[in-house]
Design a binder for these strands. Structure first.
Length: 226
DNA sequence: GCATTAACCACAG
DNA sequence: CTGTGGTTAATGC
């Protein structure tokens, strides 16, 4: 295996930045960098997982098989860890991760990762912080999904992509209509219809996957009350 | 009852 | 894979 050094990496996580030079060397000897094409599965539900995965670049969807259909748990934008809960919390993956655009990920040996957690408090602190932020986000997402109507759920997610993924009110949707449906818990027909309606009302402009959010005020209103 | 919401089906690009 | 129309079930006023 090619000997890598993580100390030169420009894409270090906050946690890894707290590692000492000697620890970085251990990390370098126990991790590999893997490129993924759009659509490739990074890890799969039901499979045994013995690696911590750090997404360096790209965009990923986390999906879980529900009783009825597949559900998109959430989108994850690099840089971030993938599957910490499912790798540390159990031997088997409870969900899958699929690249939505060309992505690069580091696979880190679980044993080495755990030893950092035990020995380096700064490292642990950063990991715990990331986990907590994620959980808070998930709580809020859960409430909107359960209590809002489809219009609101869709608007919320369109805004989320603009604000948290692309930092732009104009972007290309990384998902098909069907996947958007899996994200906001509805049918693909409803997604089509609602997007058309928002377009007709001048709140967004959409053609194919390209979308522009025009009336943010209204969108936010729909997101909250819709 | 009547209106609204949203799912399911079918079919056409 | 998408967009639309018809139909239908559930819920609310």
């Amino acid at each position: 295996m090619e000997k890598m050094s993580c100390s030169a990496c420009l894409l270090k996580s906050k946690a890894v930045e707290s590692l000492a030079e000697s620890e970085l060397e251990v990390l370098g000897q126990n991790c590999v960098e893997v490129p993924f094409d759009k659509g490739e599965t990074i890890f799969k539900q039901e499979a045994l997982s013995s690696n911590i995965i750090y997404l360096q670049t790209g965009l990923v969807k986390l999906i879980i098989k529900g009783p009825q259909r597949t559900q998109i748990l959430r989108l994850k934008k690099a840089p971030c860890y993938l599957g910490l809960p499912t790798t540390v919390g159990d031997k088997v993956n409870h969900y899958s991760a699929v690249a939505l655009e060309p992505s690069k990920a580091c696979f880190i040996d679980l044993g080495v990762f755990k030893s950092f957690l035990r020995l380096n408090t700064e490292f642990s602190y950063e990991i715990v912080t990331e986990l907590c932020k994620n959980e808070l986000e998930q709580f809020h997402r859960c409430v909107t999904l359960v209590q809002n109507q489809v219009f609101g759920r869709l608007a919320t997610n369109l805004l989320y992509m603009a604000n948290s993924i692309y930092d732009n009110n104009e972007y290309d949707l990384p998902l098909s209509r069907n996947e958007i449906a899996d994200l906001v818990c509805t049918s693909r027909e409803t997604v089509s219809r609602l997007l058309s309606e928002l377009d007709q009302e001048g709140i967004i402009a959409i053609s194919g996957k390209h979308i522009r959010l025009l009336d943010l005020k209204k969108l936010e209103d729909i997101s909250k009350n819709g």
